[in-house]
Simulated scan of single mutants.
Amino acid sequence: MNTSATIPRFGLGTFRLKGQAAVDSVSTGLALGYRAIDTAQIYGNEAEVGQAIADSGVARGEIFLTTKIWTEHYAAGKLIPSLKDSLHKLRTERVELTLIHWPAPGSGIPLAETLGALAEAQAQGLTGLIGVSNFNIALMQEAIASVGAERIATNQIELHPYLQNRQVAGFARGQGIAITSYMTLGYGKVLGDPVIQAIAAAHGATPAQVALAWAMQLGHAVIPSSTRRENLQSNLAATGLRLSQSDMEAIAKLERGDRLVSPPGLAPAWD
């Protein structure tokens, strides 16, 4: 089974959203038509996400919910209890996707042990799909050796016009593993790029819509976040934007290796 085909191409991220801001963002997103929500244990907002979903009136079965296991829970005896705690906060019996959040090479826990526990969580019905995040090619190869490529639904990585991660994306594609792009707008840095702005003007679109459409057109999933209704609505409209081949080629030339997130002790040796 090619599990990557089941990853929604557009969703709502909740990184850095706390308290009522998280509730409001998810509530507004669901009201506007978002049906994929991405959170994580370390975000500290799973309870707020769960509250927003429960109060939304949207049937739980219509929502694709993702969470991520934090590094302190990577040991075999800790992962499943931590996921059950996440499910309690999220007010659900299972999530659609659970990821290993960072490879954390200094954690001392073998990757095979963590992936084995994640596979067991899947077998127990606690998560529909499993995957990884922030993995380089070598770690993806190790993950594939542990559980098989067909079990790895996605690798969620930083990916935007200034960091296009072509080697990792190409390897994943060859294995049937989806890429989920986070920080697709490059913390907003790419929105002021003259090339992005010119393409946006030509299409009557916003720079954010262009960046999101670019990533989706490459076959990646995207999970932009916002606390503003107008931005949430505008971002969602990116699903209807089709860029030309010349647009895609122009954006391809913006690659500059501008990595924005690489926490010491958590990040691998990037490709």
Rank of each mutant, 00 (worst) to 15 (best):
P103L: 10
I130R: 04
L241T: 01
P207H: 04
A238T: 00
S25E: 08
A252Y: 06
G265D: 05
T154E: 09
W270L: 09
T39F: 05
I80A: 08
T67G: 06
R151P: 00
L129W: 02
L83Y: 03
Q141F: 00
K189R: 15
I177T: 02
T184S: 15
A5C: 04
Q217V: 10
A205L: 09
I37W: 01
A121Y: 01
I53R: 04
A238V: 01
N2L: 12
H73Y: 11
L111R: 04
A145I: 03
K78I: 01
S107T: 13
I53Y: 01
E72K: 10
A104S: 15
Y43D: 02
P194A: 13
T71I: 12
A112I: 04
R229P: 01
A117Y: 10
D24R: 15
W270S: 03
R35H: 10
E72T: 14
E72F: 07
Q164C: 08
P224C: 03
K253L: 15
A75Y: 04
S246R: 14
S4D: 13
G116R: 10
K89L: 14
R35K: 14
G61L: 07
S25T: 12
V147M: 11
I157A: 07
T3V: 13
A211T: 05
I63N: 02
L191D: 01
A52R: 00
T28Y: 03
D85F: 01
A75L: 05
L99W: 11
S56F: 09
G106Q: 14
L115M: 13
I37F: 05
P268A: 15
T71D: 04
V95S: 10
T14I: 09
E230I: 13
S133E: 05
R151Y: 06
E150P: 04
A112P: 00
L79E: 00
I63F: 11
Q122W: 09
G116K: 07
I42R: 13
N155A: 06
G240K: 10
A269V: 14
I251M: 11
G148F: 11
L266K: 07
R94H: 15
H220P: 08
P268Y: 14
Q141V: 06
Q167W: 04
L260F: 07
L79Q: 01
T127K: 07
H88E: 10
H203V: 05
K68D: 12
I196T: 11
Q51A: 11
P105N: 08
G257S: 10
Q20K: 14
T66A: 13
A269M: 05
T28H: 02
L243H: 06
